[in-house]
């Protein structure tokens, strides 16, 4: 199980990297942490002619915070992000999702940007990014810099809105409203495995009422989708418990989960309902602790 042959470059500047990527005409790939790409190479499921590693390019890793939220360099490892107290404080949902990613020895190399760009439908970070309203900064020689909202980014399994010559350089995570609580929950066959079903949920609370809610699920379709109150067609005035039950049923009715070795489609559908309810309930409870209960 050895990797197929490919060429390798580790340029010193982003411009040089972008030039290589463009010249590769779709046959070149960015090597970030490699925790998904290298297994695919080992199984000979991917055959890039050139791997471009940006580890020598300054400024692509690191967490920054300003009044509007977090800016996370695309090459920030999942471990660094998880351990950064600003991530935990400013984006508890992202923190919670990071803890479900693989194992520590995977997160020590795997990057936040790499996970989003890999767009595995069962991965945790894409679902979290959707619920958080994250935005990805993409750079290319041809188009310069553009910002892609997470909800426009994931197009299908392992497929994103990135053009072949584009690189994600940064992920912006806006600060959540103070009355928002969140929760990431998943059930996998073993701890550390990809989710059979994962649910990222955020609830904006006003007293005993739900003012808004957002959801995204991993493992239940070709890509994670953002599900809002409107998209779930939830009635407005019900008690939170009734609403969460409705949301669970609505999610279950809307998804077309895959069937595989680990779970049937029926199981994933069932679990989606159960976890949606559990995640929303937990998010609602947490919102109270963050002051949401007082702001009614």
């Amino acid at each position: 199980m050895k990797l197929p042959p490919f060429a390798y470059r580790a340029p010193e500047s982003l411009e040089e990297g972008l030039e290589l990527l463009a010249a590769g005409e779709g046959e070149a790939r960015i090597l970030a942490g490699g925790q998904s790409l290298i297994p695919m190479l080992a199984l000979r499921l991917a055959r890039p002619s050139l791997l471009i590693e940006l580890r020598r390019v300054p400024g692509l890793a690191g967490v920054h915070e300003d009044g509007s939220g977090l800016r996370i360099g695309a090459l920030t490892t999942e471990l660094v992000a998880e351990r950064d107290p600003r991530v935990r404080a400013a984006s508890p949902l992202l923190f919670e999702a990071l803890e479900f990613v693989g194992h520590p020895a995977i997160r020590s190399r795997g990057t936040v940007g790499g996970s989003l760009c890999h767009a595995d439908p069962a991965a945790e970070l894409p679902a979290a990014a959707l619920v958080l309203g994250a935005e990805l900064t993409a750079r290319s020689l041809a188009r310069g810099t553009r910002t892609i909202p997470a909800r426009d980014f994931f197009l299908g399994p392992y497929t994103t809105a990135l053009e072949f010559d584009e690189v994600v350089t940064e992920v912006r995570v806006p600060a959540p409203p103070s009355s928002q609580g969140s929760c990431y929950l998943e059930v996998s066959r073993r701890p550390g495995d990809f989710a059979m079903v994962g649910v990222a949920a955020a609830v904006v609370r006003g007293g005993d009422r739900v003012l808004d809610l957002r959801l995204a699920l991993s493992g239940v379709g070709d890509r994670p989708r953002l599900l809002t109150r409107d998209e779930l067609e939830l009635e407005g005035q019900d008690s939170p418990e009734v609403l969460f039950g409705q949301a669970g049923r609505s999610v279950a009715a809307r998804i077309r989960p895959p069937e595989d070795l680990h779970a049937s489609a029926a199981y994933r559908r069932h679990l989606s309902r159960v976890l949606t309810e559990r995640a929303l309930r937990t998010a609602f409870e947490r919102a109270a602790l963050q002051g949401g209960a007082a702001s009614a």
Binding site: M1, Y8, L31, G34, I38, P104, A105, I106, S108, R109
Partner: peptide, 26 residues
């Protein structure tokens, strides 16, 4: 050789890392 078993774990700049999932060049 696909990053699951952990037998190849080494410390890379002090962090536990699967050495089957890192290029030597990296």
């Amino acid at each position: 050789e696909h990053g699951v078993c952990g037998a190849c774990t080494v410390l890379l700049d002090s962090l536990p890392t699967r050495s089957c999932l890192v290029l030597a060049a990296s």
